[in-house]
Every structure is written in structure tokens, then in C-alpha cells.
């Protein structure tokens, strides 16, 4: 190793790029959440709408994501020792958790939509409760954007599993795990905002 005179070089370039990406993503989500909070403070009636979300399903989803994050961390730990079988096992568990999350999410969506709480909630708008309809717009916007990230994460994990299977790019397990933890992190804040704060 020739010169690592500058301490920053300790961070390899893939991880550095991932951290920068995460910073960017956190700002996108964070500003959406800031907007939600501002309007939440403006409309106290959103509490009543939040009560209509399915708390137990949300809690279950949080649990699933936390556990999946745990598996991702374990996969990363195993990848450093290049334990192929272990990495693949943990990554598939992560994918399984992600799929469960999406399944529960889509069940929640169908249930809400069947009750008339859609993206635009025309029923609420016609009843003169435009602000309440806006809550549901935010609900779908925030959770939908998050679900999109879950989906992207799952696809990325799929690619990484393919690489690992061919004994390549073990260090990329860490990158995808970082991304997955970020998805988890965002959900940790979305859950209380959308489900608990009644």
C-alpha cells in the first residue's frame, strides 16, 4: 500500500458513493416528511384520519423491516469472510422479509381503497373534507415512495446475489446492505408519523 496519507482514503470508493447517495435520499424523504409535518400541525383533523390506518399491520411491517435489516447486517458480516453460502442464505431471508413487507403493504392499500380512501379520495372532497383527502394523498405518496425504494432494494439484492453466486464482488454486499438499512431507517420515521400519531 503506497500512500494513504489522507484519512479519508480509509473509506473505499463504493461505500463513499453509497453514503453520498444515502445523504441525497434522506434529504428527499426528509423534505417530504417536513412538508407532511407542517401540514399535520396545520390540520389537527388529520389525527382522526391517521386513526383509520391499520396500526397492527403497520407495526408488523416495522417488525419485518427491522428483522430484514438484521439479516442484511449478518449477510454483510459473512461477506467479509467470503462465506458464500451464509451470505446467500441471509440475503434470501432479507428478500423474503422485503416481499412480506410489500405483500402486507399491498393488502393495506387494497383495504383502504375499498373503503374509499384512495389517492385523491373524491368522496372526502365532495363531502367538503378536502384536508382529510390530502392526508390520504400524503399517506400514499410517502408510503408509495418508500415501497418503490423497497422494490429497488430488492432488485439490487437480486443482482448482488447473482454476483455472489459466481464468487464475484463480495464487497458489494455491504453496499446493498447500507442501502437496505436506509430504507429501514426511513420506515422507522414514517411509521409513527402515519400510523401512531392520532
Amino acid at each position: 500500500m503506497q500512500s494513504t496519507t489522507v484519512s479519508l482514503r480509509r473509506v473505499p470508493q463504493g461505500r463513499l458513493a453509497l453514503w453520498l447517495l444515502i445523504a441525497g435520499e434522506l434529504i428527499i424523504f426528509g423534505s417530504a416528511i417536513v412538508v407532511y409535518l407542517l401540514l399535520r400541525l396545520r390540520y389537527p383533523e388529520w389525527g382522526a384520519e391517521a386513526a383509520k390506518t391499520h396500526l397492527s399491520l403497520g407495526a408488523f411491517n416495522t417488525l419485518v423491516l427491522l428483522v430484514s435489516s438484521y439479516f442484511a447486517a449478518k449477510a454483510h458480516e459473512a461477506s467479509l469472510k467470503k462465506l458464500k453460502g451464509k451470505v446467500l442464505r441471509y440475503l434470501s431471508l432479507t428478500v423474503l422479509c422485503g416481499l412480506i413487507f410489500l405483500g402486507v403493504k399491498s393488502y393495506e392499500y387494497t383495504e383502504k381503497i375499498s373503503h374509499g380512501y384512495t389517492f385523491t379520495s373524491p368522496k372526502l372532497v365532495e363531502a367538503g373534507q378536502g384536508a382529510a383527502a390530502l392526508f390520504w394523498s400524503f399517506y400514499y405518496f410517502l408510503t408509495g415512495l418508500h415501497a418503490l425504494h423497497v422494490l429497488v432494494g430488492l432488485i439490487a439484492i437480486g443482482f448482488i446475489m447473482y454476483y455472489v453466486k459466481n464468487n464475484k464482488h463480495f464487497h458489494r454486499v455491504e453496499l446493498v446492505a447500507l442501502y437496505w438499512h436506509m430504507v429501514d431507517l426511513i420506515w422507522i420515521f414514517l411509521f409513527p408519523l402515519l400510523y401512531i400519531m392520532q
Binding site: I28, F29, S31, F119, V125, L145
Partner: peptide, 20 residues
């Protein structure tokens, strides 16, 4: 970041009819 979130909301206002 903020303008990406804002532009997404604007796009949804246009194509999905939300009221952000």
C-alpha cells in the same frame, strides 16, 4: 432533495389529481 419531492408532488397533482 426538496425540489425532487416537490416536483413529484406536482407531477402527481397533474397526472393523478391529488391536491398537494
Amino acid at each position: 432533495g426538496p425540489v425532487i419531492a416537490g416536483a413529484l408532488m406536482l407531477l402527481l397533482d397533474r397526472v393523478a389529481g391529488t391536491g398537494f
